[in-house]
Design a protein around this nucleic acid. Structure first.
Lengths: 377, 377
DNA sequence: TTGTAAGCGTTATCAA
DNA sequence: TTGATAACGCTTACAA
C-alpha cells in the first residue's frame, strides 16, 4: 500500500513556466548581447592565464553572463579538453550492511574531490561477483564519463585487476595491493590499512592485561585467499602471531577461528567450538565490531563470559560504547584512505605519463575509550 | 607515519606502453576501416529503430568496432542529445554515522539507475548547512553534468527548496515534502516514510504488552521544525498520541522527551529526567536504533530497567539483535524509496513537460524478530 | 541502403 | 586586444 497525493493544480495554472532546458544560456547568446567574440568570452570566463583582455570588455562579459545566469556546459568543455573532472568510485555499499567502511571511504573521496572541483560517480559493486568488473569499469573511462577509477574491493580476482592494469588507465586501488610477479614488476597505486600492525597492537593490549588464551576470528575468503598471500586476514593472523611470539606465548591453533564471518551462522559455529575447548579463550580479537558483538553474544549463550575489556573489534562503531559489555576497537583510517586515493588518482589523471606505482600502508590505531566512564551494572 | 613502497621498476621497462588516451578509438577510424559513412555507423551502433542497413554492412561495422575495442564517447552523444544519463544524488553521508539510512538510499537509487543505464553522481551534504545548496545543485544540471537531481535532506530550509522548485529542473525529494501554500498550489515529487503510521504501530505494540507509561524520544530540529509543521518528529508524535488516545491512555507530556538526539548528551539528559519522574517509563520509543541503544544505556545507569521487549527503535540495525537486552525496531523502506525516487526522476527527465507533482508516503513496518530465539542470560 | 553536411557548446590556433 | 575558424565525437535532416 502506497499513499499518493497528486496536486490538484490545473495544467493551465502552470502553463507560463518555461522548460528549464529552454532557459539555458550558451555563449553565443553572450556574444550577441555583448558584441564580443567567443574567443574573448572564453578567456574571460576561464580566466585564461596570460590572456590580455581589456578591463572594460571583461566586465561587460562578466556582467552579461551573470545577468543571463550563464553556466559553462561541462560537456562541451570536456569534449575538447578530454577531461570531464569526474572520477568513478567502485565500492560495495549493499552487502555487509553492518559497518561504516563504505560510508567513510565515500566521505573521504568526495571531500577530497570537492576540494579540487571534481565530482564522484558511484558504482556499486556486488560482493564476490566479478563477471565483467574490468570491462564495466573500463567502459566508464572509455566513454569519457569519468577520468579515472578508484576501486575498493578486497576480494577481487587478480585476473580482473590485471586486465584493468593492462589498459593503463588512471586507476587507484583501496584495500587491495596489486603486484605482478617480481620479474614483471608492475605495481598499481594502492592504499591499505596496516592490519598486521593493528592486530599486533590489539594482541599486545590483551597480553598486557594478562590474557594468554586469546581467540582470533579470522575470515577465510576462499578462492581469493588462495591466490592472494597478502589477503587482509592473513595479515591479521601474522600480527597476532608476531605479538604472541614476542611475548613467548605458544600459539594454539584451536584459538584461531576460521570461517566466512559475514555469515552469522559461521560466527555462532566458531563460538560453539571455542566454548568446547578444554581451556576456552579469555579474550577475543575480531576483524570488525560487528563480528565482535556477535561473537560475544554467542559465546555468552555458550556460557563463556569475558571481561568487558577483553575484546577488540574493528571500525570503532558507536554501539560498542553503549553495551552492557563494551569493548575495544581498532580505528581504521578509511576517510584518510579515501582522501589519499583521490589525490593519487588526480595526479595520475594530470600527468598521464604512467608513474612507477606506489603501495601505501596506513597506520591502524586503538580507539581511545576509557572503561572507567562506563561502570558495569 | 605512512609506509610507502615504490616499485623499483625502471622507466624504460614500461616505455613501450601507450597512454590509454592514445589508444582510444573514434568513429572516424571505424569509417576509414570499413569504408562506411558516419551515418550508417551511427545507425548500426545505436540500433536506430526504423533504420534499414544492409546486413552485410551492419556486420562489418560491428566486427571492426569490436576489433578496435570501440566505445561510444558519451560526451559527444550527450552534447547533441542534451542528456548525459547521469543523475545527482544529494545526501548527507558523513554526519550521524551511526545508521544505515544513507547507504540504503544510495543502494536503492544506484540499483534502479543501473537498470536504466543511468549513473549516479554523489553530492555529499553537510547537516544543516544550506549556504548555496540550491545554486550548487542547480549548477550540476545547468552544466549538464547530470540530467536531474534527487535531494535527500530532511532539515533543508524551505527557501532553498523553493529556489530549486522555481527553476523547474528535474527534481525529486526524499524525506522532505515540499508544498507551497495551497493557493499557489505547487508541489514537488517527494517520497517519505509513513512515520505517523509507524510510530502508531510501535505504540500499539507496547500498549498491547500492557505498557501505559511509554516514553517517546522525539527530536526537535530548531528552525526547521518551526517552519515545517510536517516535520518527521511531529509526525512521530502524532502517531504516538493517536495510539494512546485510541487506547484511552492519558498523554503525559513528561514522557515526551524533546532534544537534539544526534547529540549523545541530550539523550543522557533526557534519560536523567525520565528516571526522576514519580512514575518512570516502563517502555521507550525512539526514532532510531542508535538513539534507542543510547537511551537504554543511560536509563540503565539511572537505575531504570526495562524489559527486553519494551523498546522500539528504528532502522532495523543489526546490533539490536545481539544485545543482552535486544529490542524491537521499525523497518524504514529506504531502498524502495531510493528506487522510486530514481524512477520518478527518470520520468521527469524524459517527459520534461512538468507534471503535477506527487507526494508519496511509504509504509513503515515492524521488523520481525522473535525474542524466543534469544533467551535472556 | 548509404552519404553529405550542419550543429551541439566548448577550446585552440593563428591572424588581424 | 580581438576575431575567424577548425577541431572535439556524436546525431540527424536531407539528399542521393
Amino acid at each position: 500500500m502506497v499513499l499518493a497525493i497528486t496536486s490538484l493544480l490545473s495544467a493551465e495554472a502552470r502553463a507560463g513556466n518555461k522548460e528549464f532546458l529552454s532557459i539555458m544560456v550558451n555563449r553565443k547568446e553572450i556574444a550577441e548581447r555583448t558584441g564580443v567574440s567567443m574567443t574573448v568570452i572564453s578567456h574571460v570566463l576561464n580566466n585564461t592565464p596570460g590572456a590580455r583582455v581589456k578591463n572594460e570588455t571583461r566586465e561587460k562579459v562578466l556582467r552579461v553572463a551573470r545577468e543571463l545566469g550563464y553556466v559553462t556546459n561541462a560537456l562541451g568543455k570536456a569534449l575538447i579538453e578530454n577531461k570531464i573532472h569526474h572520477v568513478a568510485l567502485a565500492i560495495n555499499c549493499c552487502d555487509s550492511d553492518d559497518d561504516q567502511t563504505c560510508k567513510r571511504i565515500i566521505a573521504g573521496v568526495t571531500a577530497a574531490a570537492a576540494e579540487q572541483d571534481y565530482h564522484v560517480l558511484l558504482c556499486p559493486l556486488k560482493s564476490r561477483m566479478d563477471d565483467n568488473l574490468a570491462s564495466d569499469l573500463a567502459e566508464l573511462v572509455q566513454s569519457r564519463r569519468v577520468d579515472g577509477l578508484i576501486l575498493n574491493k578486497e576480494d577481487v580476482l587478480t585476473a580482473e585487476v590485471a586486465k584493468l592494469a593492462a589498459m593503463e588507465l588512471p586507476l587507484v586501488l583501496i584495500n587491495n595491493h596489486f603486484t605482478l610477479p617480481i620479474d614483471q614488476g608492475h605495481m598499481l597505486d594502492s592504499f591499505c590499512p596496516d592490519l598486521f600492525g593493528g592486530t599486533r597492537i590489539a594482541t599486545n593490549l590483551l597480553i598486557s592485561r594478562g590474557h594468554r588464551r586469546i581467540a582470533l576470528f579470522r575470515s577465510e575468503n576462499g578462492v581469493f585467499a588462495k591466490e592472494n598471500h597478502r589477503g587482509s586476514d592473513q595479515r591479521r593472523e601474522s600480527g597476532y602471531r608476531e605479538a604472541l611470539n614476542a611475548a613467548d606465548i605458544p600459539i594454539d591453533r584451536d584459538l584461531i577461528a576460521v570461517g566466512d564471518f559475514s555469515r552469522t551462522e559461521d560466527i555462532e559455529q566458531a563460538a560453539g567450538i571455542l566454548s568446547q575447548l578444554p581451556q576456552p579463550p579469555t579474550a577475543v580479537i575480531a576483524a570488525t565490531d560487528a563480528i565482535a558483538l556477535k561473537a560475544l553474544h554467542f559465546l555468552r549463550r555458550f556460557q563463556v563470559k569475558l571481561a568487558p575489556d577483553a575484546v577488540v573489534g574493528g571500525g570503532d562503531l558507536f554501539f560498542r560504547r553503549y553495551l552492557e559489555q563494551p569493548f575495544h576497537s581498532l580505528v581504521l583510517p578509511w576517510e584518510r584512505m579515501g582522501r589519499m586515493a583521490f589525490e593519487q588518482i588526480k595526479k595520475n589523471i594530470d600527468h598521464n605519463a604512467d608513474s612507477p606505482g606506489t603501495m601505501t600502508v596506513l597506520p591502524v590505531t586503538l580507539a581511545d575509550f576509557s572503561f572507567k566512564e562506563l561502570p558495569r551494572i
